[in-house]
Design a protein around this nucleic acid. Structure first.
Lengths: 198, 198
DNA sequence: TTAAATTTATGACTTAGGTCATAAATCATG
DNA sequence: CATGATTTATGACCTAAGTCATAAATTTAA
């Protein structure tokens, strides 16, 4: 995350996207630094059979899509607005210039990438090795503790649909529905009018 | 990767690990920057049922385990020597000091993390959505093109065991054996005395 | 140079989670 | 506020990949 004032000072634009709009596409080169101002943006892949995998969902003030700005790699996934969203957009060259002038900002960008690498490492291992209930709990605990910094039992209200949980954890929606019901019985989750609490 | 001279100038030690030695453990705090001088190091997770997932295998001159140096997160996986290995080790505080003094080095470390994030994004999507043959080809193509910079067909000799391919792609060794044989029939791979070529 | 360990190989079988069909409940929108 | 779209729900069934057993080929180390 980069402070709004600094972004604007360096000439960042604010762009408004409608729900379902693409911000960039898998395989394309990166030209901008992006940071959410309002709304939600997801990065995803769609395979040949139409199955979706959500890499991550970003809301204010998270940035995304930086890796290809640093290295000669294309975007590994699409970025799509989950809701109507406003996004700061800064030209690649200006962004890199900014990092050189503000080492502390560079460090905080690096910190952000470090956290995402941590999340990806955890989820890759989960998806590869764990059963549905374990995967879902790991995902929700990550969101609860690392993103929302909550500790109290059932203090985290999950604002994801069962389908989104499925697409984040490599499962099918029916499996998530069955697994969350089973987790409720085991008192690992609460379900209050269809919303999950962890 | 940081130049050897610079590492030594900042007081890096060279540590020799025997095959199977642990360099650090999942869940622990990070105190050092690591960079391979010789041999191979893997980062992995072992689940409750004993199944292994290999996050990555590193050889000279790759660094690994940086993310927890930047952010207050623990190691998401173990680091274990795959072969006898020599590793540069630099204290966390000195490493961060080095980055502040050498912005270009900081940028190259960021670049390295960006590439790993790219790899993880690709493999997470593969493991979540693709069948065994697709996963294996994507893994091998990544290693061939992005790590070894090879382009000629079958110019990449894979020096991984079937078991390592399985643990990198979330499959079982029998599945990898059957899938690679099938890929050989389809002329996507060559197998010359048990070695894979892509 | 031999014995032990590892790696590759193959067949039979089992099963977890996916697939498909259908529907109720809830939400969003004109 | 009515209607169409989305989300949650449930049962039946199916299949890809995992599991298990066994063995041959190769590599390692003693």
């Amino acid at each position: 995350m980069i402070a709004e004032e600094l972004l604007l000072e360096f000439g960042a634009e604010v762009i408004t996207y409608a729900k379902e709009d693409y911000l960039f596409e898998e395989g394309k080169k990166a030209h901008y630094y992006f940071q959410v101002k309002s709304g939600e943006v997801k990065m995803n892949n769609i395979n040949a059979q139409g199955k979706e995998f959500i890499q991550s969902i970003f809301s204010c003030p998270r940035s995304f899509g930086e890796p290809p700005l640093f290295s000669d790699i294309p975007y590994p996934a699409n970025a799509i607005a989950v809701t109507k969203a406003e996004v700061y957009r800064l030209k690649k060259e200006v962004f890199l210039e900014l990092l050189l002038n503000y080492p502390q900002v560079h460090l905080s960008v690096t910190r952000g990438m470090a956290k995402r690498l941590y999340y990806k490492a955890i989820m890759a291992s989960e998806i590869s090795s764990e059963d549905p209930e374990h995967r879902i709990l790991t995902l929700l605990d990550y969101l609860k503790e690392d993103v929302h910094q909550l500790t109290e039992p059932f203090s985290f209200k999950v604002n994801l649909t069962r389908q989104q949980i499925a697409d984040l954890s490599g499962l099918r929606v029916e499996t998530v529905i069955r697994a969350t019901k089973s987790l409720e019985k085991k008192e690992e989750l609460k379900i209050k009018n269809r919303k999950l609490y962890r």
